[in-house]
């Protein structure tokens, strides 16, 4: 199958690549661009581990082909804080023990970044609904909810 040239802006960096049409965006980010912070848990759009921002909106990167990202703006977990300088949302996850194995965490973070921009003071119910499309097998969600509350206090608005 022919490869298609694409130009994608990921975390503010322009990438020019050629991709087979069937290549999933999740695989492209992880294996072509080596941005392995985006994780793959189900490849059928349920678990939410592969959530990224596509033109600012959270989407499942396992349900989009890389070729469709041509000309678009993508943000992954790597665009947030670094290990030495965490983003306030990441800090809140750390302080509230909102992660255990950490595999689902990048997907949660990328779901929550735009959510907290739109809902700077979320209620507990709003938080539960916001993270309903992300599965966490380890935490039982309780500490994630607490972390989002804390993040809403920490984040500048």
């Amino acid at each position: 199958m022919d490869k298609f040239p694409i130009t994608v802006n990921v975390n503010g960096v322009r990438y020019d690549r050629a991709v087979e049409p069937r290549l999933l965006l999740s695989d492209f980010l992880r294996h072509d661009l080596c941005l392995t912070g985006t994780h793959v848990g189900c490849e059928h759009g349920i678990c939410g581990a592969c959530t990224i921002l596509f033109d600012g909106e959270p989407v499942r990167s396992c349900l989009i082909f890389a070729v469709q990202a041509n000309g678009h703006d993508i943000r992954t977990v790597e665009s947030l804080g670094s290990t030495e300088n965490l983003h306030p949302l990441q800090e809140a996850f750390h302080e509230k023990h909102a992660l255990q194995c950490g595999f689902c965490t990048p997907g949660f973070l990328m779901t929550l970044i735009p959510f907290l921009e739109k809902h700077p003071k979320p209620t507990e119910e709003e938080i539960r609904e916001a993270i309903d499309g992300n599965i966490c097998r380890c935490t039982g969600y309780e500490n994630i909810i607490q972390a989002v509350k804390l993040a809403s206090e920490k984040m500048p608005r």
Binding site: G45, G48, T51, F54, E57, P58, V59, R60, L63, I64, T111, E129, A130, D132, G133
Partner: peptide
């Protein structure tokens, strides 16, 4: 609309 899958799916 809010009942159609999850927000990430509705964005696409």
């Amino acid at each position: 609309m809010p009942n159609i899958a999850h927000a990430q799916i509705r964005n696409r």
